[in-house]
Amino acid sequence: MHLEVANLSKEFTTKEGNVSALKNVNLHIETGEFVCTVGASGSGKSTLLRLIAGLDYPTSGKITVDQVPVIGPGRDRGMVFQRYTLYPWLNVAKNVEFGLKLQGIPKAQRRERVSYYLDVVGLTQFRKNLPKALSGGMKQRVAIARALACEPKILLMDEPFGALDVQTKESMQQFLLEVWRRTGTTILMITHDVEEAVFLSQRIYVLTARPGTVKQEFQINLPENEQGARSYHVKTLSDFQRYREKITQLLRDSTVEQEVMVG
């Protein structure tokens, strides 16, 4: 898997004039990587993800997955949104199964994959529950399982834990690392939480706003345990703190610049 974003720009035409949401964005992701994009509100993070997912079209530039240009949404790029992610009339198992059904995968195979991914996200015992009976964290687990069940080349996530409380969020981060390790999926995740990004990713792209551009790329070198995933201990390391400080400062500076420009 090789995702390449080259000179990507996106302008929105609004009544107040043109908004340049992204300008000349370049990035790439390789097989099995966990990459985060952080940026202040309005820096075009969601726009970037939607373009990669094929849910919107760039003004200029190119996106390719394995050399093939992205022309629209497809099951090779799974997506997890922050809200309204589940089909409310389907129970947990049927939500996970939904994508497989859409693709016409035979029933026996569907059942096998559903039970595997329900196990991966630890929701086997809730398989018959309707979404309205689930907590926010559980809903996101189902959404992740549903996306993974289609076995996409890359999993795109737009602030998937943004609406969760701090405790749930922490356990979801640990959970996601575990899923990543177990399935080997390539992940591109968006967040505005710097700590979350440093904890989860191997690389980070920092986006700054107006227009949204990649300000800097960070390689995150933090120790992993024997199973190849990080645990909470890394948060206490001085390296962890340094990454966090640096990225936070970068975002702070760009926000100040912006305010000066606007003011």
Partner: peptide
């Protein structure tokens, strides 16, 4: 919700499937 429709596309759904299997129910 727009997210529900877009999620369906990323799960490999076609437009007619979105119409009959997401919007209608």
């Amino acid at each position: 919700p727009k997210e529900l429709i877009e999620t369906t596309y990323t799960l490999g759904g076609k437009r007619w499937q979105v119409l009959f299997q997401v919007i209608t129910p």
